[in-house]
Every structure is written in C-alpha cells, then in structure tokens.
Design a protein around this nucleic acid. Sequence first.
DNA 1: ATGTATATTGAAAATGTGTTCAGTGTCAAG
DNA 2: CTTGACACTGAACACATTTTCAATATACAT
Lengths: 210, 210
Amino acid sequence: MKDLTTRQHEILGFIQLHFRQENFWPSIREIQTHFGFRSTNAVMGHLRALERKGYISRVAGQARAFRVTYDDGETPPEGSAEVIDIPIYGHIAAGYPDGVETGGAIGRLQIDVDTAGVRRNRRAFALKVRGESMIGAGIFDGDIVIVEPGLPKHGDIVAALIDGETTLKRFMQKPNHPPYLKAENPDYPELNPVSELVIQGIAKAVVRSL
Amino acid sequence: MKDLTTRQHEILGFIQLHFRQENFWPSIREIQTHFGFRSTNAVMGHLRALERKGYISRVAGQARAFRVTYDDGETPPEGSAEVIDIPIYGHIAAGYPDGVETGGAIGRLQIDVDTAGVRRNRRAFALKVRGESMIGAGIFDGDIVIVEPGLPKHGDIVAALIDGETTLKRFMQKPNHPPYLKAENPDYPELNPVSELVIQGIAKAVVRSL
DNA sequence: ATGTATATTGAAAATGTGTTCAGTGTCAAG
DNA sequence: CTTGACACTGAACACATTTTCAATATACAT
C-alpha cells in the first residue's frame, strides 16, 4: 500500500473520526471547513489521491458516500478469528474433576480465541473473581477470568482448588522446591505447599465490565 | 418503545440494510426509489414518524445524516448472545491533530454484547491503553478497553481527546460546574476543564491478556 | 531544466438532497 | 358521522454537495 503524505493522512484521519463520532461520513465542505481550506477543491485533490492510492472509494456524485478500504483492517469482516463460547462458573463446586458441567454455569461469554489467548480444543472456562487476593495483579472482585486447563509455569496466574474453593493465585515454582501459591495482595499470606494442590487451569485473560 | 407500523418497519429495515451493505446511509430519494414512491414526501412522513417514535435521529438539512437510536430487533439470535466485531484503534499517534492512526484498525476483537456491555447498533470500538494514568481503576498499560460512543455521566471512564492524544480518564461533572477529567493515579494531576474537550466515548469493558 | 506529484485558491456549473405547501384516500375509533 | 392517525401524490423551493475548469507554488527526482 502506497504511503500517504502528512496532509492526506490527516484528511483520512478526520474522515474516520467523523464517522466514528457521528455515524455518517463528512461532506467535502465539512472537511474543507475543518482544515480551513478556502476551496473545496483542496479537499477534492486529497480525496482523489486517497482514492487513487486505494485508501477509500467513493460513489461519484453522491453526498457523504464514502467507503474506507484501507486494506489493513475493516476489509475482512468474514475471515475473522474464531469465536468460542465459554461458560462462566461462579464459585466452583468442590470436586470439579475433569471439566465441563454445563448446569453449573452462571453465564456464558463469547470471545475470539486470539483476544482470549486460549486454544479452541482446550476446554476453557471462566470464573467470576471473588475477593481481592489478586488485586496486585490488577484483578479485582467481580472480574471475569478466562482459564484454560493445562500445566502452569512459574509465574502464571492459576485457578486453584483449595479447601473446596477456587481461588486465583500466582503459581511459583523454584527448581528443586515444591511449588507454592502466592497472593498478589500484601494483606494475604503466601500459601505454602499444599498437600492437595489441584490446579484447575491457567488464567489467560481478564474481562471486566465497567 | 412505541410500536411501528408495517411500513415504518420496512423503511427502518431498508435504512439499516443499506447502511450495512453500502457503509453509508441512503438518501431520501434512494428510499423513495426502493419503495417505488412517486413522491419524496412519502418518505418524509415515515422518517418523521420514526424520529418521533425514537427509532432514529437525524441532522436537519444534512444529506444521509442518520443515526439509528434503537434497533428494532430483526437480527437473528444465533446461538446465545450476539457477538459483535469490534475494531481496535491502536495507540493514537501523539501530537496528531485529529488523533487517528493511519490504517484505522490495528486489530479486532469479537465478544458478545452482554459481556462487553455495549449495544449492537452503536459503533463500539476498542483502544489499547497506553500509560498508567488509570491504574487506580484497575486499568493498566496494554489493556484493551471497549469504548462506546455516547454522552458520559458523572463518574464514567471516558476516552477523551486532549492535545491530539486520546487518553482514558474519569469524567467528573458536578451540578453547575463545568466538567473535568480525573486520572486515577496519585502521580497524575487532575485535569481541569479543558476548552477543547472531545469525548470519544464511554469505556464499557476492559480486556487484558495475561 | 524539466517533468511529475502535491497542495492550494477561486469561481462557476450541475446535480443531489432535505424540506415545505397543498391535497387525496383509507381505515379504525369515538 | 366525524376525527385522527396513516399512507401517499405532486410540484416547487432552497441550499447542500459534488464536480469541473483555470491557475499558482513548492518539492523532488531525472
């Protein structure tokens, strides 16, 4: 894709900003006014350049009839990443042996695999975080964590089953030592190696509704 | 929400269909032609009705300047919740007068509307957070915020355009006072009422890859 | 130096487009 | 029967908007 000059870049930027803010495209005169041109023709030149370079396309003679075709984004609405459906378990019932109990879900969320950072075939699930033990890692009460089953590495945040309750902790393992879990909150103690340490999975992403 | 007549429903449908297919709104005469009316006024009547009933809003005198305020449904509920495709407008180039990065989207994410907390018809977009100014609200450098255009209320976290840069701040507005923006980080000062305060949208959700 | 792309002004032509005024006809409710 | 919402026709008006023709000036590669 050919490069744009500074001015062309600004024009394209304004067109897109206008569209995002107003939900319809600007007219040539609006672009002219915004940049302080004294002639609509100044805009025309830039639009022609943008069209020639393939960034936009227009319908001749029609008002506000833009299409932004910057082939960087926007173009492939179809070939987008795969979206998976993830069940949200509130507090997990003790004895979550191997996974999916559809009945226990308090909700579901759907997100594409790339953003969530999970693989399709693994059975990911989500948890609603309760408590403040991971506040130091930016995970707050009420957040939703997307968890993927697997073996944790040192430093991963994991969902672990302790005392029949699922909590979020950071998994720490130094060579030749048994692993332990660490809360990311100064008020909470480190948890020393638990006998029954069941790692449910590794936290891959956090989603929070504001 | 008031009910629509059959004809009004058809008109609204066509407007939205046109927008999805062409990326810009139809003109009144295009609507007229599509339905075979012999007078533009037939369309005018329906548009007025749609506007009165709150389904759309328009900018008087401007061509193709629609906004669909309320979606009448029509969208097939595939599976469970509806998944929308959100463009990620990346790091905004610093010092850019219009605050838009060249190519437009640097990525996309897909998420269901309930989890994201946005409405289908509004054009939500996402931003990759840069900087630590909202660390107190649990939003960190590198997080992705999902933003929906709209008018902010007191206390909302907004994406605002200041000095040509988009930043995330909390929108504060006390009665009889001009609004100001506040960073959620003790190291950052409060931002007093800016003359050129452009609110791009309200942050609805945060997604973080771990 | 010469050509080509960029960036702009200025004026005018040609439509596109929203809007209004004045009617006709239907249909259901009061 | 009358009233009022709805669905339209027809013609005209006033700008909004795109587009074209004619020039000037700068920068940059050939």
